[in-house]
Design a protein around this nucleic acid. Structure first.
Lengths: 140, 140
DNA sequence: GCTATAATTAATAACCGTTCTTATTTAGGA
DNA sequence: TCCTAAATAAGAACGGTTATTAATTATAGC
């Protein structure tokens, strides 16, 4: 059994066909899909699946640390498997993204954060700009 | 005249009492206020000010680079004057925040980003965790 | 200072991503 | 196979934000 399903079960959740499919779409489909994208993919296999089910399960998957929600500043959350720590470079014009690998951010900020006595659970970092293709001749 | 007002005028916008007041609240009031917080403050001086006016003008101020919107993961945007580059450490339990000063992030990421040929316009970085007071004995 | 006019506002409706409600179905243990 | 708590489908509700519109107002030109 898929290790994501194992972790779902270990969290006390049932393995439903809907949950299998959601994980399948996240593993095999495009990265950075919105809930609606995911729901549309699912409905090709299971026409009756509900958007509410998708949201509810995505939130469960996030709470278990299996999935991450990212904000590309376009008013909707995008979801991806939490398989490797990375961040995104997002084009504000066309929405294309480039992932860049693990940062040493919490390490870098160790001193500052240490002094505050916060117990850190995570961070978000997204870099915005315009991709090569979307840069106007005038440099925008 | 306040340099923020100057920059507003330089952007081709009129100086209205509402805009003066919004900037005043941002300069003198608490940091990280929501649009509703700001509106409530304004209404103490101008009872008829509208929430729509607040949002519209905050977006104008953001587009001019005078204000920044930050996401503390509680479903609403918080606004602050864009007077110094800094980031936040946010307690997921009580919402308290600690600001930490300018990062050298775009510098640090220079190589990666350089290769992508993106033209960078900004980034968001927020660190989440639990503050000293909110950490349970069990370490949460 | 006065006027003309385009920008701005107040009030409120609409929008839209997300969450909640409820009756029905189902996964998984006994 | 049953039982029962968990999960689902359908759709209503929520809430932060944006859009609409008629009335008001800041400001440039006289």
């Amino acid at each position: 059994m898929n290790s994501f399903l194992q972790r779902l079960a270990a969290g006390g959740y049932r393995i439903t066909p809907q949950r299998r499919l959601i994980l399948e779409v996240l593993q095999q489909g495009a990265r950075h899909q919105t809930a609606e994208d995911i729901c549309a993919s699912l409905q090709q296999k299971e026409p009756n699946i509900s958007l509410g089910t998708v949201y509810r399960n995505l939130n469960i998957l996030i709470s278990l640390g299996l999935v991450t929600g990212v904000d590309f500043k376009d008013g909707r959350i995008r979801y991806e498997l939490n398989d490797s720590h990375h961040h995104h470079l997002v084009c504000l014009n066309c929405g294309n993204t480039v992932e860049f690998p693990g940062c040493n951010l919490e390490e870098t900020l160790g001193d500052i954060i240490g002094r505050t006595r916060f117990k850190i659970t995570g961070h978000i970092l997204e870099v915005f700009g315009y991709c090569r293709a979307c840069q106007e001749p005038d440099g925008r």
